[in-house]
Every structure is written in C-alpha cells, then in structure tokens.
C-alpha cells in the first residue's frame, strides 16, 4: 500500500514536469486564423477593420461630444479642406471629419451592443429549443415564426416616436427585439445535430443535469458557429441602425452616427452640390460592411470543412 502511494507520488511529480500537450481538434481558432491568412481579401479586410476601429474608437477619445455638435452658423457649408476642415462642415458649421469619427464609433457600438444582446438571447433560446425538442421546441419555434412575420421596420419606427425617453440604449433594445429570432433558429439547427450524439447520452448516464449538458457539453462544440454568426450579424446590425437614422427615426440628431450623416443625402441640393456631407460616411459604411463580410466568409469556411478548398 505504502509502495503504491509512493508510486503515485512520483507519478504526480513527473506529471507536473511534463508540459501538457493540448491541441484541440483542428476546427478551432487556428483553422480560422489560417483561413484568414490564406485569403488575401480576408486579410486585407481584417486589417481595414482594425484600422477603422483604431481610428473611430481611438480618435473619439480626443473628441468632446458637446464641442463637436455645437452650432456655429458662420462656418456652415465649408467645402473640402476649406477653413481647416479636411472634410468640410455641415449646415451647423460642424466639422464632418470629427462627426464621422464620433458617428462611426456610435454606429459600431450600437451594432456590437445589438449583436451581444441578440446572440445571448438567440443562443439560450436556440439551445433550450433544440436540446429539449418536442413540445418546448414547437412552442418556441411558433413564437419565433410569429415575430419573424411582423414587419420589423414600421414597428420600430412607430415605437421610436412613442417611447418618451428615446436614446441610443432604447434604440439598441428596439433593434434587438426583432434581431434574436434568426439567431435562435440558426443555433437550434446546430444543437439538433449535436443532441443525439452519444456523448450527450454518456453525459446523461454520468449524472450531469440537462443544464450542465447544454452549456458545458454541447455549447463548446458549436463555438465556431457562434464566432461566424457574431461577425456576420454585427455588419447587419450596423446597417439596420444606419438605415433607421437615415430615415430620421434612428438616433436623435444631437448624437452623430453614420446614418445621420448619410441622411444629408435626403436633400437633392446636398446630393449634387455638397457631396462632402454624405459621401465619406457612405464610403465608411460600405467599407465596414464589406470588410466584415469578407472576414466572416473566411470564418465560415474555417467552420465548415465542406466549404474549404482542401
């Protein structure tokens, strides 16, 4: 008995010396990195995204919101590079470049916040629905169906005018209210394919509760799907915010965003004579969306072996 103890003690010592070899099945992070590095468009897109994030988030650290949105009619409608304003000024004499930096940050932040909410809600709903199946699944999916057939835009527009204390946070919740349904459906489909694997049964016979199996066993197996979906929905949600602001139902005019800047194009005079008002924001939005999509596409290839080239 004593010998055995010593034996295990030495074993333990040698165990600590040995460096743990931990390699995940090649479907994780490394494949994603490899897939991005391999495709030139994805790599360029990733660099552009990082640059834009640095510019907007870093730049807005040095800016003061009250100062930027201050009206100064004397400076109104300067053109490209006039009066020290690189991208000119708008009707209130506000510097477009600063508005762009601040607005870009706001739009991206809103896109990310909406994505965080929709992903969490969608993931939990999808997990529960897909894992339990049967009646629970049927009820949840009918609710999802119902929300998906509602006309999203008109309802958000009506609610923005009804809600008394309307600001960026309420806008995030309004968009998220409709955004979680496709996410829930998406995750449900993956959970359904995982649910009947033997390792779930093995966990059940090992005495794990359903809750533990859902979050500790099944969830890690769909991480690559989560990454893909997060990246792709961020782009979509920035788009939704921008289109609402463009229509005039998004963020209040005191909060700059890409949508409010693009909104200058509502006036035909601005479209023809003052392109500096709306063109930079439009290009920035286009570049952000395209870049995110390219990176997302590369991640999708990494997550799904069938789409990979080799």
């Amino acid at each position: 008995m004593a010998d055995k103890k010593k034996d295990t003690a030495t074993k333990k010592a040698s165990k600590k010396d040995a460096t743990p070899k931990a390699t995940l099945p090649p479907s994780g992070f490394r494949v994603a990195v490899r897939e991005i590095l391999r495709s030139k468009s994805a790599l360029t897109a990733l660099i552009i995204i990082i640059l834009i994030l640095l510019l907007t988030f870093g730049g807005s650290l040095f800016l003061n919101r009250a100062q930027i949105t201050e009206m100064n009619i004397v400076d109104a409608y300067y053109g490209w590079g006039q009066g020290g304003h690189l991208l000119g000024t708008d009707d209130g004499g506000r510097d477009i470049l600063k508005l762009l930096i601040m607005g870009g940050r706001n739009s991206i932040m809103i896109g990310i916040s909406v994505t965080v909410i929709t992903e969490i809600v969608g993931l939990v709903v999808g997990l529960v629905s897909g894992y339990y199946g049967g009646v629970v699944d049927a009820i949840i999916m009918r609710i999802v169906d119902f929300i998906q057939i509602l006309p999203q835009m008109p309802i958000i527009i009506v609610l923005t005018t009804v809600i008394p204390n309307y600001n960026a946070v309420t806008l995030v919740f309004l968009i998220a209210m409709f955004g979680w349904t496709p996410t829930a459906r998406y995750y449900r489909s993956f959970i359904l394919s995982q649910r009947d694997r033997d390792y779930v049964l093995a966990s059940k016979t090992s005495g794990s509760s359903n809750f533990q199996i859902m979050f500790r066993e099944v969830l890690p197996n769909i991480t690559s799907m989560i990454i893909i979906d997060v990246v792709l929905t961020i782009a979509g949600n920035i788009g939704i915010e921008t289109s609402l602001s463009f229509l005039g139902y998004g963020l209040p005019t005191t909060t700059p965003s890409l949508g409010t800047l693009i909104g200058f194009a509502n006036d035909p005079v601005n479209v023809i004579n003052r392109p500096w008002l709306w063109l930079p924001a439009t290009i920035l939005l286009l570049v952000i969306s395209l870049s995110i999509n390219y990176v997302g596409r590369a991640l999708q290839r990494a997550g799904d072996a069938r789409q990979r080239e080799n």
């Binding site: 931990a22 033997d198 390792y199 049964l201 093995a202 059940k204 016979t205 005495g207 890690p220 197996n221």
Partner: peptide, 20 residues
Amino acid sequence: NKDVQMIFQDSMSSLNPRKR
C-alpha cells in the same frame, strides 16, 4: 447511474471532442 453505467458502440461520438 452511479451503479449502472454504459459503454457505447461508437467511441468517437461517445467522447466529447472538446474535452480532455
């Protein structure tokens, strides 16, 4: 299930690929 356990046919799918 402390007293009654199971060995599965397909060893690949019965072990969670994400766990050590």
